[in-house]
Design a binder for these strands. Sequence first.
DNA 1: CAGATTGTTCGTATGTTTGCGAACAATAAA
DNA 2: TTTATTGTTCGCAAACATACGAACAATCTG
Lengths: 107, 107
Amino acid sequence: MAKNDYTEQQRQIALFAKALGHPARVAILHFLAAQESCFFGDIHEVLPITKATVSQHLKELKNAGLIQGEIEAPKVRYCINRPNWELARSLFAEFFSECKTHKECCE
Amino acid sequence: MAKNDYTEQQRQIALFAKALGHPARVAILHFLAAQESCFFGDIHEVLPITKATVSQHLKELKNAGLIQGEIEAPKVRYCINRPNWELARSLFAEFFSECKTHKECCE
DNA sequence: CAGATTGTTCGTATGTTTGCGAACAATAAA
DNA sequence: TTTATTGTTCGCAAACATACGAACAATCTG
């Protein structure tokens, strides 16, 4: 057991991944990425959960930096946070890119 | 609030993402992907947690289908599950590929 | 101002995750 | 057979996640 901690990159990947770790949040991001932007109500409409829970999931995605929202009274407009979306994409792409594991290993 | 459930793809992404949602598991996968294969002890050595916890994380990664292990007495050899690794890579790549959100949105 | 609309926050209940030490199992070596 | 090595499993505690209804806040409309 080493004393080494995790790298910043590993932490960041884990953070993004955690945000993606629930189907509702995957669905929200998928829905948002398909549009220029949309309101809370539109998101709520396509999900099988109550508005309180939707709001909570949106909060988590916001905390993870993957989305952002702004009040457009009396509604709230949400959209993808592009810079972090790009960051996440590249981190995951890089993470999955290299795999030296033998094809014959562990059969 | 719709009655629609989540799609299989959304569930699968969430499953993989959940497995990646902890820095220790990210570190394990990163370590494994960099080698042809390795033993439990080698993994344990680079992590700041006890063997019991390492074993638990490996179990989760195995359940998610991202790794596999085989006994090579008295050790246990672990390695990446290539087919699912590829699946995860393509799912994440596809997921992050499209984002129609305006750059000017929500500023 | 009163009421409707739109989301967020609060309180609560239930279940899951993370982590540890201790006990256990299986094999290898003396 | 005894002892050492290597991991897994068990039992527990603390923390976190998920979901809901109810209460709340902020804005618009009549």
